Computed example of a mutant assay.
Amino acid sequence: MSEDMDDEAFAEATLTDAIRNQLESGEPPAAQATFNKLKLVGYEEADILKLMAHVLAIEIDNMLRADRPFDSAWYEEALRALPTLPGENEDA
């Protein structure tokens, strides 16, 4: 079980790093806009990064399941909808 936790922690850290890179590079612009919006309404930085990483994880999972390219338009739209997460109970 500890190996699963290590894998989960590694995945979360990797996704969070990817979000930090998006914020630093300014690409996509929705990343910084979303971060600023959530910060403005009182979210802590760590919580914002977790929410954004969750959206990235959903898109990566959907991309792999459907064997398709990354959907930047969906990703940016989902980021802008935060703190509301994409419907995870929808059929994929």
Score class of each variant (00 low, 15 high):
73 A>D: 14
77 E>V: 09
67 D>K: 15
13 A>G: 02
34 T>C: 01
54 H>S: 03
35 F>V: 09
38 L>T: 08
30 A>V: 05
82 L>D: 13
91 D>P: 08
62 N>V: 01
5 M>S: 01
83 P>Q: 12
9 A>R: 15
8 E>Y: 10
45 E>I: 06
77 E>M: 06
19 I>E: 01
68 R>I: 15
22 Q>W: 14
51 L>H: 09
72 S>W: 09
25 S>P: 03
32 Q>M: 11
72 S>Q: 10
80 R>D: 11
91 D>Q: 07
36 N>T: 11
56 L>R: 07
13 A>C: 07
15 L>F: 13
70 F>N: 02
79 L>Y: 04
13 A>E: 11
47 D>A: 07
77 E>D: 14
65 R>E: 07
57 A>L: 01
80 R>C: 07
74 W>I: 02
72 S>D: 11
68 R>D: 00
71 D>Q: 00
15 L>R: 06
59 E>I: 00
77 E>K: 13
69 P>I: 04
59 E>L: 00
9 A>W: 07
16 T>N: 11
22 Q>G: 01
46 A>Q: 12
53 A>I: 04
76 E>H: 02
54 H>K: 06
52 M>T: 14
45 E>N: 11
33 A>S: 12
28 P>L: 00
49 L>R: 04
31 A>Q: 01
47 D>V: 07
44 E>S: 03
68 R>N: 05
58 I>L: 10
50 K>A: 13
75 Y>V: 06
20 R>E: 08
6 D>L: 10
22 Q>L: 08
39 K>W: 04
86 P>K: 01
48 I>N: 09
66 A>Y: 03
87 G>Y: 05
32 Q>D: 11
69 P>T: 00
4 D>I: 09
8 E>G: 06
55 V>R: 07
90 E>G: 08
70 F>Q: 04
88 E>N: 07
6 D>E: 03
53 A>N: 05
60 I>Y: 09
73 A>C: 02
58 I>C: 00
8 E>W: 09
51 L>E: 15
65 R>H: 13
36 N>G: 10
81 A>R: 14
64 L>E: 06
48 I>P: 02
40 L>Y: 14
43 Y>C: 02
55 V>P: 09
77 E>Y: 04
16 T>R: 15
23 L>E: 03
51 L>P: 00
85 L>H: 10
46 A>C: 06
24 E>Q: 14
15 L>P: 04
23 L>C: 05
87 G>C: 10
33 A>I: 15
80 R>S: 12
65 R>F: 11
54 H>Y: 08
20 R>T: 05
19 I>Y: 04
14 T>P: 01
59 E>M: 00
88 E>Y: 12
5 M>T: 09
8 E>R: 13
40 L>R: 15
50 K>H: 09
62 N>E: 11
45 E>R: 14
67 D>E: 15
20 R>P: 02
39 K>F: 10
37 K>T: 15
16 T>I: 14
72 S>C: 02
85 L>I: 10
55 V>L: 00
83 P>H: 11
87 G>I: 13
58 I>H: 10
36 N>L: 09
6 D>W: 00
74 W>R: 09
50 K>N: 11
33 A>P: 00
43 Y>S: 12
17 D>S: 15
